[in-house]
Amino acid sequence: MQVFDFAAYARFKWSDMRMILKAMGVTLHVTLLSLAIGTLIGLILGLIRCAKNPIVNKLPLIVMEPLRNSPLIVQLFLVFFGLPSVGIRMKAMQAAVLTLSLNTAAFFAVLVHSSIKSIPEAQWEAGYALGFNKFQIYWKIIARQAIRLLIPQAITLYISQLQCSSLVSFLSLMDLSKAGQQVAQKTMLPFLIFGIVAGLYFVLSFPLARFAKYLEKRIGFTI
């Protein structure tokens, strides 16, 4: 079996490993940038979703629902290959970050909305009864409880978006999985190479998962 053919491993050069590590940087770049932008936009959309006005609070859905209900890969193709036909051209990196950001924003908005909505109405009333106004209640009472609910869910989303970022390899962007494919083809050692690639994804996402656990304990109070 090829796996035990150790002599063949010599085909895997240090330069290949360097290429994979460099690609890991690209994955990290795309993911972190789009998570940051996506979180910001998602927060705004989520807060608009919590508005009282029945028309205003539906507006974000116009953006959110298409993004949530179509595959990320199709969204990437639409932006990168489709938009040039209406005159909007962008580099693979820009298209990747834009699409991933919007995608993250759509899911993050749902989390923000559901976290805020799951704080009992009684908390609002207790705040009002003490004389706080709406924004004071949001800031001093609701947000602080909602964030406790939001953090673990948000990190789960981040982990899944990190893995979904592998789809940007279809835009000929040299990210971790694309580099893995190329090196695997070149060296004909798919088990080893994809094993390494999977391991590197693990290295990126596992600390995130542990961090979520830590944060959860750190802001430890029960509702």
Binding site: Q123, E125, A126, A129, L130, Q145, R148, F221, I223
Partner: peptide
């Protein structure tokens, strides 16, 4: 008005955080 009239509810609503 809410300063003038303090209110306490049936269910206890302390702020859990």
């Amino acid at each position: 008005i809410r300063e003038t009239c303090g209110m306490v509810f049936q269910q206890t609503v302390l702020f859990p955080h």
